[in-house]
Write a protein that binds this DNA or RNA. Structure first.
Length: 258
DNA sequence: AACAAGACCTGCATGC
DNA sequence: TGCATGCAGGTCTTGT
């Protein structure tokens, strides 16, 4: 939809998101052609024809929707791109945890948002050896560690819980002890959970939808997340426990995960 | 340097 | 019905 299109008009209706929009953001984009769309970690990257890249993050509740311009604007439609084809792409983000900014494409890796990022979990470079090296000596929990973007990017709260359950590793285990056979279980578990979730269109908790507007259905495949008090789908002998780690809910099975 | 906790903001479900 | 409370998919910042 967007690649190859020129941005005929860019309206920033609200610029105080997680990071305020840079001055001249709309002007810098107006008239530019989008050459391609990429992803790095949870950032969407739109490469423009002048060597600049638009960095977009959806935060927790943000979405991009393709609509006809006649559709009334929503309360949280913060940015509206109108293409040379006359369609609109709207960035809607009720919680304003998302962001948009601009950087030269060749400076992307040096950008403050990018320079600390670890490997992408679905990349072949994310191996058990790489993970255990990154975890070595870490005293924090393995759950907190795999949410840490310096260790591995893109694994959020749901998928961290699901991956640890699949690998049979307790979320409370010290990160530094996840090496050898444990790392060899965790890496493929993360990859499997993410691939399955992508194939299912993601997890619709409250309001997540795919670009098509359809709900994802991976939430039906959750083995522990959101299942406090229900029986573990693996051992079937114990109830799923909910604890709080770093202010976030963790769900796990005390029998299967050690 | 590593870690835990707090912060950002809005909407929704729940319980009184 | 109204109000208070707690919780939510993320990640950056602050303080120890």
């Amino acid at each position: 939809m967007l690649p190859g299109r020129r941005l005929a008009q860019v309206d920033v209706r609200r610029r105080d998101l997680r990071i305020p929009f840079p001055d001249g953001f709309a002007q810098a984009l107006t008239g530019r052609r989008v050459e391609g769309i990429r992803r790095r970690a949870k950032y969407i990257l739109a490469d423009l024809d002048d060597g600049q890249t638009v960095i977009i993050h959806l935060g927790m509740a943000g979405r991009m929707q393709i609509v006809e311009p006649r559709v009334p604007l929503g309360r949280h439609d913060h940015v509206v791109f109108t293409t040379d084809e006359g369609k609109q792409i709207r960035f809607n983000d009720p919680r304003r945890f998302g962001l948009m900014t601009l950087t030269p494409a060749d400076k992307l890796d040096e950008h403050k948002l990018f320079r600390h990022l670890g490997p992408d979990p679905l990349d072949s470079a994310f191996t058990p050896a790489v993970l255990s090296a990154a975890l070595k000596g870490r005293k924090t929990s393995i759950k907190a560690a795999i949410l840490d973007q310096r260790i591995v990017v893109g694994v959020g709260n749901i998928y961290a819980c699901e991956s640890l359950h699949r690998a049979g590793i307790s979320p409370k285990r010290k990160a530094g002890t996840v090496a050898g056979a444990l790392a060899a279980r965790l890496v493929p578990a993360i990859k499997k959970v993410l691939k399955d979730a992508i194939a299912a269109g993601g997890s619709s908790l409250r309001d997540h939808v795919q670009v098509s507007g359809e709900l994802g259905y991976f939430q039906h495949a959750w083995r522990v997340y959101g299942r406090e008090g229900e029986s573990c789908k693996h051992c079937k002998t114990t109830e799923v426990t909910r604890i709080v780690q770093g202010g976030r809910s963790t769900f796990y099975c005390r029998v299967c995960q050690r």
